[in-house]
Design a protein around this nucleic acid. Structure first.
Lengths: 212, 212
DNA sequence: GTTCATCTTGACACCCTGTAAAGTTGCATT
DNA sequence: AATGCAACTTTACAGGGTGTCAAGATGAAC
């Protein structure tokens, strides 16, 4: 083999090839991955027991590559409710298109493989943890509407981030990135927030003066 | 063949078998369908050109069987905004679990087959038409929030009905049917509606009296 | 130079799709 | 009663996918 060690050890090379195949929208077959990695089909099996295992690894690898940690930073930095929810909407608009294919593969293979089912549940629970933290911050600022508990608001926010929801609006119904982001942010605010104390006072004053 | 005409002609029999296989969560293979229909594998090809064609037909058949027309009636009958949105939430809670598997099959095969892509887009557009009508009624009642056009509200409502959103909340995060229905209805109301004129007046009166 | 992990080639069993050909069966028409 | 036809059967095949197995090549480290 002439170019075996071109891009780092075998495993990493295969992982890269797998994510490339998935991101390209091609079906994830062992032959395709092997070909793209410049390696025999059997070599893939030396590193990954089967296709589901490869898919799981590729999903994790993609999460690293895409820098989930960095992408979340604007949300962490937000210091008020409106900014936080807008940042989340932006995050969804940016991140969903990138993970779309990977999520599709994982969801498709999930039925047959316990490891993939676990990996999926892991993903969902991680997302829920993050969105519950958001809900807790909203509550801490006194902005979470009394109709919602932190748990309910967190779960709801997580579900609003589902790839299919994004896909239907942006891919199937032709929404622009901006329209998606704006509308989702608006829906988040209107659903979860009560007016801030400051706004409430101003509003009240206006109503009183206009009705006297 | 002893029992050939047991449940009506071959085609209908095969369709029934296909929907049974899908609803059972088994992978949709031609052999499985044939076996369940009590027919040779080749007979399936006499009625359906290939697997995607069978999947499309099964999806349509299921829509008929489930009585989509009847299920939508409570929404048509609603005479105010709150009732309409609650009815929609109820509809989603009831209907999504039933079409879950079919939608999964169609979405999975969609990538490879143009006919399935079209069938999917058809479905999305039909849903959008229905939810736009809902949004138009809200606007007609003077209840649609000025932040939303009929088009945007309709699309958003359609996307909120995505199977994956339901699946994440109910299947992955363990929400009850009731909790799903209530929370979604609340989110719909809070996102799309402005208070009714009557409520607005009462509210205003209360504010004035409490601040004088 | 030997050892060892890593990779290769080649072969296999199994399952699935879709195509093809030739034969059966039973009903409807004449 | 004979014929014709549509629906179905059995059998076979090519092609592609997964996963397993065995035997050989290769190169770096010791």
């Amino acid at each position: 083999m002439s170019s075996r060690n071109r891009t780092g050890g075998g495993r990493a090379r295969i992982l890269e090839a797998a994510t490339a195949v998935i991101l390209n929208g091609e079906p994830l077959t062992m032959s395709a991955v092997a070909a793209r990695a410049g390696v025999s089909r059997q070599a893939v099996y030396l590193h990954f027991a089967n296709r589901p295992a490869l898919a799981v690894a590729a999903a994790r690898y993609t999460d690293e590559q895409l820098g989930l940690a960095d992408a979340v930073r604007p949300m962490e930095a937000a210091s008020d409710a409106e900014t936080l929810l807008s940042a989340y909407a932006e995050f969804l608009a940016d991140y969903n298109p990138r993970i779309r294919n990977i999520v599709g593969v994982v969801k498709a293979l999930r039925r047959d493989d316990p490891a993939l089912r676990d990996a999926w549940l892991d993903r969902v629970r991680n997302r829920r943890r993050a969105t519950r933290r958001m809900a807790r911050r909203l509550a801490g600022w006194g902005r979470l509407a009394p109709e919602f508990t932190v748990a309910t608001a967190g779960d709801w926010l997580a579900a609003q981030g589902s790839v299919e929801l994004w896909e239907e609006l942006v891919v199937d119904l032709g929404w622009s990135r901006q329209r998606f982001s704006d509308t989702m942010a608006e829906a988040f605010r209107r659903t979860l927030l009560v007016p801030s104390a400051a706004l409430r006072d101003a509003d009240q004053a206006a109503r009183n003066s206009s009705s006297t």
